[in-house]
Design a protein around this nucleic acid. Structure first.
Lengths: 223, 223
DNA sequence: CGTTGCCGATTGTCTGACAGCCAGACATGA
DNA sequence: TCATGTCTGGCTGTCAGACAATCGGCAACG
């Protein structure tokens, strides 16, 4: 029996372990600012509100600490990470470098189908920038396709961590008037270059995009 | 009482939590190849050989998984990560980008004292390349100074993870004849540029260094 | 008004337990 | 003989409960 009938992948685990579901929920709470930066995460409170044991909660906290979303102070526990302006700048710089790299990989490795998907995603972003549709979700989908197509485990893992931290700021940076539309245009430039299979141009466009995002974000932070 | 008497830092925690000591020991075992890539990490075995409880062992495993040193398969447990050639290439590429960034930050933020320390570290590397002294340790010290001087938490955390993974390969890549000496020369070029406070040149030299390291490493891997 | 000492809140760690899953050994039947 | 069920041991996933160590604040005290 040819295995390709089922697709080449070893079946992506339907029922996620409890630990991961909990991790996702807490992460979401942090990114939605239901848990604000600086707020303490008390283990017993989490066990109660999430309905899981302390052991599980602790593993979740380690996970989120590794992602940089929470900071643990020895003998004091975890709190939601609050980023300094200089941290934010560094994170944006790192994102610029690594996403440029991801885009390069995408050009090398992605198939026609994936390029089309990326185009569709950027169109969706543009549409949502004009008012209707959920902008955050559209952007998430864009990055999902990008990561899928660049086909690099290490890159994906690292960038995911960076993006999560950026989102700690994103609520503010996105609110800049007119920013969504410009962001959409910048991403379109990236996809244009990708379709032309021009890795250098795509990477450069990508760096430009992140730099602009960083500028509006830090402007809001310091202003 | 002036706090500067004790140094400005908030005291780097002398008595590390047990969990961290254990993490360090397991990490060291992996990097020394006492635990080989692909080898399974069985929780009960670890509790016995390390003398700690299973809860602690599990937290340690999560930590190392986040660093990318071990891979956990749901319902099957953790094993030492084994990197594909393409993963290795991506990791080196990421390192090149991020270390270049770190070097730029160093130029911006480090003081005279730290530049001197970096110079000393690279001298030590050169000396150890000529036979005597421990090369790995010298390189570690170099990066320690670099990270300290670039003063960026996020960068430091991310790069530490990448470097750990590179070390999974390093045992092989370092054995290339003549490589240590050339590596020393390349790092010297980085420091030269730093001393001249030329961030662009320093970053470029840094990228060059990592590229060369990547080449010899992948040559060994595929050969 | 600055110290000192105590107390509650929380984390760090351990023990023991039980269900569920997986892989491989084993047995069964065509 | 080969394919198909079935069983079993080895692990992981998760839980509950317990106890010492430590931190932070508060109150008594000099």
């Amino acid at each position: 029996m040819r295995s390709s009938v089922w697709g080449s992948e070893p079946l992506p685990r339907v029922a996620a372990p409890l630990r991961e579901q909990v991790t996702d929920r807490v992460r979401a709470a942090i990114l939605d600012l239901r848990l604000k930066p600086g707020e303490r995460l008390i283990e017993r409170e989490l066990t109660e509100s999430l309905g899981v044991s302390r052991a599980t909660v602790r593993e979740v906290i380690r996970q989120l600490a590794a992602e940089g979303l929470v900071t643990v102070v020895p003998q004091r526990g975890a709190e939601v990470t609050s980023l300094s302006a200089s941290d934010a700048a560094d994170i944006y710089e790192m994102r610029a470098s690594l996403e440029a790299l991801a885009v390069r990989r995408f050009v090398q490795r992605a198939g026609e189908e994936q390029v089309r998907a990326l185009r569709a995603a950027v169109d969706e972003i543009a549409r949502s920038a004009d008012g209707d549709g959920d902008h955050l979700g559209a952007k998430d989908r864009f990055y999902e396709v990008l990561m899928e197509g660049s086909a690099s485990g290490p890159l994906q893992q690292t960038l995911a961590g960076l993006q999560a931290r950026v989102r700690l700021l994103r609520a503010t940076s996105l609110s800049a008037p007119g920013r969504p539309a410009r962001a959409a245009a910048e991403l379109r430039a990236v996809v244009d270059a990708i379709e032309a299979r021009d890795a250098d141009a795509a990477a450069e466009a990508c760096v430009l995009h992140i730099r602009h995002a960083a500028e509006t974000a830090t402007a809001q932070l310091t202003g």
